[in-house]
């Protein structure tokens, strides 16, 4: 290996791992040390000459979170070494230190455009927020794991620098980004399903290929107490204006459209239609009130039971993509709040 010139790396540490001290020194402002310190030495040793720590940048945990300028100072210090790669931590389960590591990694990636890596324990809250954007090594929860983590980070960083594909065991050491793609597997789905079924029967370990999303229950909104209130109608059954002037997509939509129904008595096939690839639309096309009960609502409005918001919100895709639904759900919610809408009837196909 001696004939290969090692890559120049900058290492970020907090005041504790840099050997300055504990909480008493958490307000230390950013500074740099040429060469490696503490864990950085272990990194250099185990990299067997492939990585050389040009400099170590240090900042106190509290200083980092309390001073918005800290990151700028740190980036300047990092830049001064003209590094080819950057490593932060690992921070294990340390809260502030971990936040600093991911934020600095992101900034370095963006501004210096060089490979970066950090390491965090699975329970660290920054993992879920940054796994999409950064390679984060899966570590233990305390510094006792340093001897395992730092050589792995070095090995992976070296491969990133060389553009070498990570082995599958190395890929498993990094948190998945939480995204998905299609891959070609060795066996077809039927063969894998039968094998999984037999494994499950034997009580051995198996892993579902489609993980269930985390789901939190929502605290119900308080009931409406007023006798007359403002109501809005929403549907995800793909209701559109005749001819689809807004070019709404027909399934699992990322958009919604607004249909002004202020002057209508009911929905009619002359005015609206349906664009939704998932179901047989003919009954709803024949009478769109079968999708959004505007005819009934209008009679209630005339009687003074309710006040109707003049716009129907519509999208396509029964129980559409959670994130999409969430984002336009939030969009619609804020619009409705502004308009004084108090309650919603949502119809789904």
């Amino acid at each position: 290996m001696s004939d290969i010139k090692p890559f120049r790396v900058v290492h970020y540490l907090n005041q504790f791992y840099a050997g300055k001290g504990g909480e008493a020194f958490a307000n230390t402002s950013p500074y740099k040390i040429d060469g490696s310190v503490g864990p950085g030495r272990l990194l250099e040793q185990t990299s067997k000459g492939k990585l050389k720590i040009a400099g170590t940048v240090v900042c106190g945990d509290n200083y980092f979170v309390e001073n918005s300028s800290a990151i700028k100072q740190i980036i300047e210090l990092i830049k001064s070494y003209q590094p080819e790669a950057f490593i932060a931590g690992p921070a294990f389960l340390a809260g502030r230190y971990g936040e600093a590591c991911v934020e600095i990694c992101c900034a370095v990636k963006e501004r210096l455009d060089i490979p970066v890596i950090t390491g965090l324990a699975p329970e660290h809250p920054a993992v879920d927020r940054y796994r999409k954007d950064l390679p984060i090594l899966r570590t233990g929860t305390t510094g006792a794991d340093m001897k395992n983590s730092i050589p792995r980070m070095g090995e992976i960083l070296f491969k990133l620098l060389q553009g070498i594909k990570l082995s599958s065991s190395e890929q498993n050491l990094i948190y998945k980004r939480g995204l998905k793609k299609n891959a070609i597997l060795e066996k077809n789905a039927a063969r894998r399903a039968v094998a999984m079924l037999i494994t499950k029967h034997r009580g051995e370990n198996w892993q579902s290929e489609l993980p269930m999303p985390k789901n939190d229950l929502v605290t119900p909104a308080p009931a409406i107490k007023e006798k007359s209130f403002t109501l809005a109608l929403i549907t995800d059954g793909g209701l559109i204006l005749k001819g689809n002037p807004e070019r709404m997509p027909s399934g699992r939509s990322d958009r919604y459209c607004k249909i002004n129904i202020d002057s209508w008595e009911k929905l009619t096939p002359e005015k609206v239609e349906v664009n939704h690839f998932g179901y047989d639309n003919r009954y709803v096309l024949a009478d769109p009130n079968r999708l959004v009960p505007l005819d009934i609502i209008k009679t209630l409005e005339k009687r003074g039971d309710i006040r109707l918001h003049p716009v129907i919100y519509s999208t396509a895709g029964a129980a559409t993509a959670i994130e999409n639904a969430a984002s336009f759900g939030r969009g619609i919610a804020s619009e409705l709040k502004k308009a004084g809408v108090q309650a919603v009837i949502l119809t789904s196909t």
């Binding site: 998945k176 980004r177 939480g178 995204l179 998905k180 793609k181 299609n182 891959a183 070609i184 597997l185 060795e186 066996k187 077809n188 789905a189 039927a190 063969r191 894998r192 399903a193 290929e209 489609l210 993980p211």
Partner: peptide, 10 residues
Amino acid sequence: GASRVALEEI
């Protein structure tokens, strides 16, 4: 289940 195409987490 005839295809070998499958979702992979990345």
